[in-house]
Design a protein around this nucleic acid. Sequence first.
DNA 1: CTGCATGTTAGGTT
DNA 2: CAACCTAACATGCA
Length: 275
Amino acid sequence: MPELPEVETIVRGLRHKVVGQRIGGVSLRLPKILRCDQGEFVRRVPGRTIRDVRRRGKLIIIELSGGWSLLVHLKMTGQLVWTPQAQPPQRHTHLVFRFRNCPFQLRYCDQRQFGYLLLLETARLSDLPPLRDLGPEPLEIGESEFVELLVSRTRRIKPLLLDQSFVAGLGNIYADESLWRARAHPLTRANRISLRKGRELLRAVQSVLTAAIEHRGSSVDTYRDAVGQPGQFQSRLQVYGREGRSCPRCGRRIRRLVISGRSSFFCPRCQRRLL
DNA sequence: CTGCATGTTAGGTT
DNA sequence: CAACCTAACATGCA
């Protein structure tokens, strides 16, 4: 499940492979993964050069020459993989970009087919959802700004952290890890979190994300980076997916709670419920 | 075979 | 408008 650290790892890995490459052709094996006009995509993409690859939240933006960009959301199981041409495409390979004078190709693979790509004018990128509706980047926001956002909300902190319009890029894994680090119960109402704890929560979010990026993300399921390698952070997760194991800080059994339909893993001793 | 879990978001209701 | 709920997507697993 690619969240911010996984997407960042993919973007960094992809950037130095594809920037400057000219797209020779595309093969669309599963048309439904395109969220734009198919004909336009096949007509407009070949011949363009990749200018930049960047991330915003969990979205990947591949900027092409001539004022067009590709927007990619990997959702649960999407992968963008730099692969030797000679390697036969697998069952879940849905789109292939070939490059001029290059023995590698860029493949979009997605076991569950929830992810998508679309082509649009670079100038219109930020006018449209989902980019338009994203909250601030958690690694760029300041403590006071974050605390301001918290006090204006009455929602429970866990679903709030998962809300991409509140803060962009957190998913279930890093939300739980951050709450554990900050010793905050996932059901706490955002506006009931003290200023001190609010600042602590942002620092927890930032240190977890930074550490996860350093370890190239967490492969708890199918995640692979831009060259097909798994991440290394899954073994450093403290609570996520560890129901019944002991809390690394206090030894108490980690519990799992379903909050707005999502699993939440937390330590009932370290993360006391305030209400 | 059934039913559930999975993350995200669109779309609905309160 | 904010908060909350549910459906939908495809697959794998108990």
